[in-house]
Each structure stands twice: as C-alpha cells, then as structure tokens.
Amino acid sequence: PPQTPVRAAMNSIAQLRVDLTASGDQPSANLAVYFKNCTVDPTKEVLQRVESLSQLFFQRFGQAVGPRCVGLGKQRFTLGIRLYYRVMESMLKSEEKRLSVQNFSKLLNDSTFHTSLLACALEVVMATYGGSSTTGVYSNGVSPETDLSFPWILDVFQLAAFDFYKVIESFIKAEPNLTKDIVKHLERCEYQIMESIAWRGDSPLFELLRQTHEDGPVEQAEPTAT
C-alpha cells in the first residue's frame, strides 16, 4: 500500500539504523591503516575531536529539544559517528585509487575536513529523523516546533557553510546507500549555502575570492565575436 509520510519516515529511520549497525563507533581497521600511513598520525586528534564535538552536540541538542531528550541526542550522534567513519574510509579508498597515494597526512590532519565530514554525517541523520518535522508530523520524539534542520548543525560546530559545502559532493559519491530524499536534502543544503549562507560577512569564501583575485585571472577572457 502507498506509504504515509510517517511510515516513509519510520522506514528510512529504520533503514539508517540497520545500515549503520555493522559500522563501529571507532575507526575501522582500514581507517587505522590510513592513519598509520600518515606522516603525522591523526588518530589521537580524531578521537579527541569526536569527544569534544559530541559534548557540544549533546548540550545544544538538549537545549533545543529539552533535557529529557539528551538520550535521543546521544543516539543520533552515535549514528552520525558511524556514518562519519564509514564515509571517511570510502572517501580515502577512492582517493587512493584516483591519486595512487596512501599518505593522506595533510587531509587527515585538517580539522576543518573532519568537522565538515562529521557535520554532514550528522545532517544526514538529523534529516532522516527530522523528515517528519518537514511534514509537520510528530513521529520521531521531537516536537515539530524544534527546528534542528540545516543549518542548525553549522551553528553547533561553529562551522563555515563554505567548508561544509566542500564535502557534500564527495560524501554523496562515497555513500551509495543514501536515499533519494536525503540526496535531495543535501542538494538543497548546497543551494542554500551557495545562494545565501556562503555570502555572509564572516564566510571564508571572501578570503578565497580575494586570493584568487590577487593571483590574477587564470584564463584569458574569450575574444568577443566580431
């Protein structure tokens, strides 16, 4: 029978949970190998960052939804962490194949990369749970009035939208199990960033544009047709 919005949301939540059951809360053996292959092993920083970002997330989730729902926040964060490690491994495998490189020291020691990747994983989890709030239906334990939808996660992690934007396409490429609705949601996040958020005063986009401008035009403008 055709699915009601609630049934569809419940199914995608169940699918996400089943899907991530096999993924661990810690870096996998393959990830540990990538970390060891780095000039500077990022393992300790990765685990410390996860710990500190988890505290931030729990606190803000509790503030937004209510202190009695901190357990819900922990559930969501756990799913987010599993997806974060899984997508990271998948990304590194494809980069290894594309670049014939095993040492990803610079990337894996880049805090912005990790924070953006975790934020994107959490946004997928929140969108999967929060789907009902867009339909205004109370089915995931969170009242529709609490808006945890994008760009809430950027504010929690104090992450620049432009940095979040950088991981979206690679995230979708690396995680074939994403549902059509979630891919569409991430695409909407891209539009939202490019149309407005990335142009806010404190965005790193301006610095990038300034650098590009100083470097001068890379390509000559095409001559006008006579």
Binding site: L99, F104, F113
Partner: peptide, 21 residues
C-alpha cells in the same frame, strides 16, 4: 537512484577541495 548533479571533474576530489593535493 537519485539525480544529483555531480560537478567535480575527474581530476578533482576531496583532497583538492581541502588543498591537500
């Protein structure tokens, strides 16, 4: 099953986007 518009070129990936190439 989705119709996401991939925009990165073959020679571009997450390493380039984070200036780690």
């Amino acid at each position: 099953s989705h119709d996401y518009h991939f925009g990165l070129e073959d020679h571009e990936g997450i390493s380039e986007l984070f200036d780690c190439d």
